[in-house]
């Protein structure tokens, strides 16, 4: 199987899993804010192909994809969303804190930008303890409006640390468009200011995206220096939950229609992988739905 076929297959599985979450969220038994990445799957499916690298990933509230990509334990994922003790964090933390420290997804922090300097610290440890892992700060365009990104880029550059600043520019912060928040749509300009090498890629060009990810990782590994990769993408659903933002915020229905029409994964979807992801996830959701329903019947939920 070629890399691109594998990426499409895994991205389709990721979308199937998330579609099942979206469909079942209305049962109101996943009692936490769920931030899905439907529309943004190709990036993490690409990263999955570079599993020969050891990663330490620090993510945000929208951290389902790094969790699934690095860990893949679907049961612990679904249980965590149901705040059940079988969950990845024993049901204590829910959707906004998904992590699996043993497999390299070190943390997800739901304060925008807050986890970025932790990744700088993991890179510092790699350099000073002669470890080979690549530290990844995973964030969105919204975090680029926080001062902590600027501080972290500067610190990583001056200390010459092996870290990937991975920015998913999905163009929205909740329902507010990028144009209303920043004077430019390019996040790489922040890297330029800190003299950090950068590249812009897009989920609409898979070949370029995949080679950009590979180039970034090999640059960091060989030069032991920071790299900033901006990935243009589009979140096809609302900020928090399963629906469209129709009638809310800056998005128009025409914009959705156009985005869906140009969504590469929708066009090249591997139906089998999608359905497998959907059914595996739905099966587990049904299990924890029953558990939570019976707990509610006992007055515990």
């Amino acid at each position: 199987m070629s890399d691109e076929t594998a990426i499409i297959s895994y991205a389709s599985w990721l979308r199937g899993v998330q579609a099942a979450i979206a469909e079942c969220y209305s049962r109101q038994l996943m009692r936490c804010p769920v931030h899905l990445s439907i529309g943004q799957e190709l990036l993490w499916a690409s990263i999955k192909q570079y599993c020969s690298y050891e990663f330490k990933v620090f993510s945000s509230h929208r951290g389902h994809l790094p969790y699934l990509t690095l860990d893949g334990n679907l049961r612990a994922y679904v249980a965590e969303l149901h705040l059940h003790e079988d969950g990845a964090s024993c049901g204590n933390l829910g959707s906004m804190h998904l992590k699996s420290p043993n497999t390299g997804h070190i943390s997800s922090v739901p304060i925008v930008g807050s986890s970025i300097p932790l990744a700088v610290g993991a890179a510092y440890a790699a350099k000073h303890l002669s470890e080979s892992w690549i530290s990844v700060a995973h964030f969105g365009d919204g975090a680029c409006e926080e001062g902590i990104l600027h501080e972290s880029l500067n610190l990583a550059a001056v200390k010459k640390l092996p870290i990937l600043f991975l920015c998913e520019n999905n163009r929205y912060s909740c329902t507010t468009s990028l144009a209303a928040r920043q004077p430019s749509s390019r996040m790489t300009r922040f890297a330029d200011a800190a003299t950090v090498k950068s590249k812009l890629a897009s989920t609409s060009n898979l070949t370029d995206l995949h080679s950009s990810v590979g180039d970034a990782l090999s640059y960091i590994s060989s030069s032991q220096s920071p790299f900033f990769l901006e990935v243009d993408c589009y979140r096809l659903i609302e900020h928090c939950g399963p629906s469209l933002d129709k009638g809310m915020g800056d998005r128009t229905f025409e914009e959705y229609t156009n985005a869906l029409a140009s969504d590469l994964l929708s066009h090249s979807l591997n139906i089998n992988s999608y359905e497998r992801g959907f059914s595996e996830c739905e099966h587990l959701i049904n299990i924890y739905t029953d558990i939570n329903l019976s707990r509610r019947a006992l007055g515990f939920l």
Binding site: V120, G121, A122, E151, L155
Partner: peptide, 26 residues
């Protein structure tokens, strides 16, 4: 000398850095 680190005037990033570095043995 390698154990002494000058810092940029970035208190938030510096505390984040030591938090992350301490997770892995620094």
């Amino acid at each position: 000398p390698t154990q002494l680190e000058e810092l940029p005037i970035s208190e938030a990033a510096a505390i984040g850095l030591v938090t992350g570095a301490a997770m892995f043995g620094i």
